[in-house]
Design a protein around this nucleic acid. Structure first.
Ligand code: ZN
Ligand code: ZN
Ligand code: ZN
Ligand code: ZN
Lengths: 142, 142
DNA sequence: AATAAATTGCAACTGTGTTGCAAAAGTATA
DNA sequence: TATACTTTTGCAACACAGTTGCAATTTATT
């Protein structure tokens, strides 16, 4: 099972034209292991503090640029990242799915199966992207 | 015109059971003047740096607690606040309107007239609040 | 294996948000 | 209006988040 992930990760990095480094592999492993979004502090904790903070920042930025991960809006100062399953490409993030934040367990999940609804804004507004963040109680905590 | 705002602000503070102080009046004036959401740095700039950072943080937190302002989700580390026009009460923010972020001018606006659409999530998810943030080009920049 | 290119870690720095406490301002009462 | 009481503010100090330049290390290429 872990070796299967490693193959997948190698392929993902190659197809993004990124060199395969320990940090990148480890961070992608954490994304695949976790069932929700992660924020910067999680990587420092989960990785056993083996990586420098700066490296983690830079790796996440690289993954963002390449469309490997996307950000999820929050009302606080934290920045949450989730791995892109499908529709993101380099420098062009379109997350056509809803995000869910559980008020019980604090996890943030991508609801890939739930489409963003169609919105009609007042005239004069040119819509490029729509983000939906739902908060409440998740499946597991219910 | 400015005196009319001042009356309005005084009433607002009184009805929230808050004492009327220079900082609070000034910050509410800035909210009423601005046509979009503001973040912490804006208050330091716009107020002419007359207030201490700490005071601004505490004032915004007080306004949040009293339902005078609400937060708007972002994908970066900034926290944006907008004044509540209607439906918020103490410790209970329900922003049943859409937020718009203009990629040209950088402003964030409350679209009070645009309702949050109805969503159907997978079974087991208990929805308490839905936030919608649209990005694109605003009326003024079009 | 040698070279070239990219990535990482460190040091130093800037910015953001918090807490405790004394001074100042606001409110209530006489 | 003067006084006492309560709340708010500003300062100092701190903890944590994020950035930049540069040299050392790692990865890819030949
Ligand atoms: Zn949960
Ligand atoms: Zn997602
Ligand atoms: Zn605009
Ligand atoms: Zn709003």
């Amino acid at each position: 099972m872990p070796s299967k992930n490693k193959e997948l990760i190698t392929e993902l990095l190659k197809s993004s034209k990124l060199s395969i480094t320990e940090t990148r592999v480890k961070i992608l492993e954490l994304f695949l292991k976790s069932n929700g979004a992660l924020e910067h502090a999680d990587f420092e904790k989960l990785s056993g503090k083996s990586f420098d903070r700066v490296t983690i920042y830079r790796t996440l930025q690289t993954f963002l640029d390449k469309g490997i991960v996307h950000k999820i809006p929050t009302t606080d100062t934290s920045v949450r990242y989730a791995i892109c399953r499908s529709e993101c490409r380099e420098h062009e993030h379109h997350d056509h799915h809803v995000h869910f934040r559980c008020e019980e367990c604090g996890s943030t999940q991508c609801l890939e199966e739930t489409d963003i609804p169609v919105l009609s804004l007042p005239k004069g507004y040119d819509v490029r992207n729509v983000e939906v963040v739902v908060s409440g109680v998740c499946k597991a905590c219910h």
